[in-house]
Amino acid sequence: MGVTQILFWFLSALAIFSAVMVLVSKSPVHSVLWLIAVFFAISGHYILLNAQFLAIVNIIVYAGAIMVLFLFVIMLMNLNKETEPQKNLWMKLTGVVSGGCLLIVLISLVRQATEIKDKIALTNKGDIGLIKVLGKTLFSGYIVPFEISSVLFLSAMIGAVVIGKKD
């Protein structure tokens, strides 16, 4: 068992444990912090897959910007353990059972699929995740979607200001 395997299992366990903790922690602030742990674990997976650009962008955009925004809103509303609304036990149980059924069905599907039987995801090798290759592809073949996403950002910014404004 090489270092890559050990890191894979460690990061997977960290991601799933943190994701479960997002759900079970009572305080919303703790949920946000556990979700940041999930994002760091997923960034570790990206590094393992040699997708370095996405790893850094994931940390900067998700853990850095989006989660700070969540944290701001939670602290602005002063949400804590006492104000947290709870569903009753049966509703929770139903949700967990239905989500588990979905997981079981999808996993059995994956185990049956023959096309992906011996396929491997290249770890530690390959240069398609490097910023040079990605940037060249982005700015040669995908320039129109890139510009459209900038317009999307502008409209989202204006939308957030308009919605959040006190009228």
Partner: peptide
């Protein structure tokens, strides 16, 4: 699926 469960139970 953890995300789906979260949407359903919270």
């Amino acid at each position: 699926c953890i995300g789906v469960v979260g949407v359903l139970v919270r």
